[in-house]
Design a protein around this nucleic acid. Structure first.
Length: 550
RNA sequence: GCGCUCGUAGCUCAGCUGGAUAGAGCAGGGGACUUCUAAUCCCCGGGUCGCAGGUUCGAAUCCUGCCGGGCGCACCA
């Protein structure tokens, strides 16, 4: 019995009470089932009687009474009590709780998957860093969180495309090219140019492949350094992301929007539909209608498209590819874009709610409380590669995903490289490794799960807590997907690992010495298998490994 | 000035689409390994949930105002 099944029983009991005239209420679709903090309040509790009292026009305890009478007859329910103002506290039979391990083991990798998001095609755009330098910590946060969110949403049935928007048009790239050329010619960094050791490195690699390049006239030289430099930088970014276990389905080139005429097409479409207006020689988008501070220029008075023109064309392109939901993950310094992007959707006649913009706060790396600022290669910022060098991929991903993106993050290198339980990733992985070790021992002893077990034998408090934790996993994944908050999965895994460690400490699983395996041994092994499965499933959603040994 | 966001234990943070006595880890103190991984577990102390109003059976959670921190407010990209 899991909370969802219990909610069904509660709903059925209410419906029955209405049918035989005991109550007159509209039975809600969503029934709240809580896991009370104290077991004195039962295994589960529902405040539904409190919630329905007003519309029913009767005291909550009256509703609770009618509900309790019928719920007591439900299969798996051991006791139902009314408490306080009208809470209904529910105690389940031990076997009904214990049966959950079987459900988990049978579902296997699919446990926690559902279809709450099925039928929607999601374009998930994240990182999208300019290819003018290595990825830094802010990008790292989105690489980890975005990738995890994609996994979580896929687990709920969404068709997700991970997409990287590659800004390879515009003056930033020009400055990058000028910086490379200057470095190749041993000239100082140009004004507004890029510094950092990586510029010299890339410039040198361009020179290696094209020894004549630096000596060409400026125009031609810049063209070569621009094309080759961007390619090298972009390969490096892809490689960094791949190492970080974040791969994209689509790398979209902004340049292609301009060269293909997509920008012109999009702008003309908006002019035709009256979504743009002309003022002071420029064309403006009515973004104020969607919460923007001011309307935005799409075509500048010199006739050139402004940056947002590319966004408009890009959005149109996404829609033409059939996405029903476009998610953009941006840094806090870009929160001003929310209204703009929603206005873009509206301008093309789409519901602005089909555009979601997630804003992530900044990330700082600290060591012993002191900020770590300088990077070996990038000069002023810490790179994603630096982070991986310091923590490893597992800890780096986990550390970035574990916190709500709403909070500014200070990652302490000392904490995340520690191999103790103040390092959450080790704590969770250790639980998995412990379980794997246990199963190896069971195999050595020739103890097998068999076809089934007696769920009533999982009767200790620690087993009940662990089973309740396992039962809650599907709702955690569903909530993480719906709220776009993958950190919930990480927090859950820490709770689950804790529940397992407590169980392990309190209950002997395998027989000691020459003792024979009992039915209880087998039941506990089922519980262990189920726990390992959920730990593995959850870690997979985060893109973190589930080690067999540590 | 306007907008977004955060403010919960000494520290780092969960909890926020309203539910019972507000949680975890760390830090501090004290315990538990002859047999399944002690990278673990148990116990102790620790709080005006920034402040003030409001909504209601019930508010850390929702609304309003204020205080404090971060980030933004281009015919740049």
């Amino acid at each position: 019995m899991n909370p969802a099944q219990l909610a069904d029983e509660v709903r059925a009991a209410l419906t029955a009470a209405v049918a035989d005239g005991a109550l007159s209420v509209a039975v809600p679709d969503e029934i709240t089932i809580d896991r009370p903090r104290s077991r004195e309040h039962g295994d589960y509790a529902t405040p539904v009687a409190l919630q329905l009292a007003k519309q029913a026009g009767v005291p909550p305890r009256t509703i609770a009474q009618a509900l309790a009478e019928r719920l007591r007859a439900a299969p798996g329910v051991a006791a139902v009590e009314i408490a306080g103002p009208g809470f209904v506290n529910i105690r389940l039979e031990t076997a009904a709780i214990g049966a959950l391990a079987r459900d988990v083991v049978i579902a296997g990798e699919k446990y926690g998957s559902a279809s709450t998001l099925s039928g929607i095609a999601v374009n998930l755009e994240f990182v999208s860093a300019n290819p003018t330098g290595p990825l830094h910590l802010g990008h790292a946060r989105w690489a980890a969180v975005g990738d995890a969110l994609g996994r979580v949403m896929r687990a709920q049935g969404a068709a997700v495309t991970n997409e990287y928007y590659f800004n390879d048009a515009g003056v930033q790239i020009d400055r990058f090219a000028m910086s490379l050329l200057a470095a190749a010619r041993n000239q100082p960094v140009p004004e507004d140019g890029y510094g950092g050791a990586y510029i010299a490195e890339i410039a040198q690699r361009v020179v290696q492949d094209h020894p004549e390049a630096a000596g060409l006239p400026d125009d031609e030289a810049l063209r070569t350094f621009r094309t080759e430099g961007v390619q090298l930088m972009f390969d490096e970014i892809k490689s960094t992301l791949h190492t970080f276990r974040t791969d994209f389905d689509v790398y979209f080139h902004e340049d292609s929007l301009h060269s293909s005429g997509a920008v012109t097409t999009a702008v003309n479409k908006l002019k035709d539909s009256g979504s743009l207006y002309e003022k002071d020689g420029a064309w403006w988008l009515r973004s104020t209608e969607y919460g923007d501070d001011k309307d935005r220029v799409v075509i500048k008075s010199d006739g050139n498209p402004a940056y947002i023109a590319g966004d408009l064309a890009y959005f149109l392109d996404k829609r033409s590819r059939g996405f029903s939901l476009c998610i953009y993950m941006l840094g806090a310094d870009h929160h001003g874009y929310i209204a703009r992007l929603k206005a873009a959707a509206a301008a093309f006649g789409d519901d602005p709610d089909t555009v979601e913009v997630l804003i992530g706060q900044m990330v700082n790396l600290v060591r012993g409380g002191e900020p770590v600022r300088m990077s070996k290669r990038a000069g002023t910022v810490v790179t994603l590669d630096d982070l991986v060098d310091a923590l490893g991929v597992d800890a780096a991903r986990y550390a970035l995903i574990r916190y709500s993106v709403d909070t500014t993050l200070d990652l302490d290198i000392d904490v995340w490289t520690r191999q103790t339980n103040d390092n959450p990733v080790f704590y969770v992985q250790y639980a998995h490794a412990r379980l794997a070790s246990l199963e190896r021992h069971a195999a050595d002893l020739h103890i097998e799960l068999g076809d089934d077990y007696d769920p009533a034998l999982l009767d200790t408090a620690q087993e009940a807590e662990l089973l309740a934790l396992l039962a809650g996993y599907p709702q955690v994944v569903a909530a993480a997907a719906e709220l776009r908050e993958p950190h919930r999965v990480a927090r859950y895994l820490e709770d689950l690992a804790s529940g397992y460690h407590k169980f392990y400490d309190a209950v002997r699983i395998l027989p000691m010495g020459d003792e024979p395996a009992t039915d209880a041994t087998v039941a506990r092994l089922w519980l262990c298998r189920a726990t390992r499965q959920v730990l593995a499933n959850g870690l997979a959603l985060l893109g973190v490994t589930a080690p067999e040994r540590m």
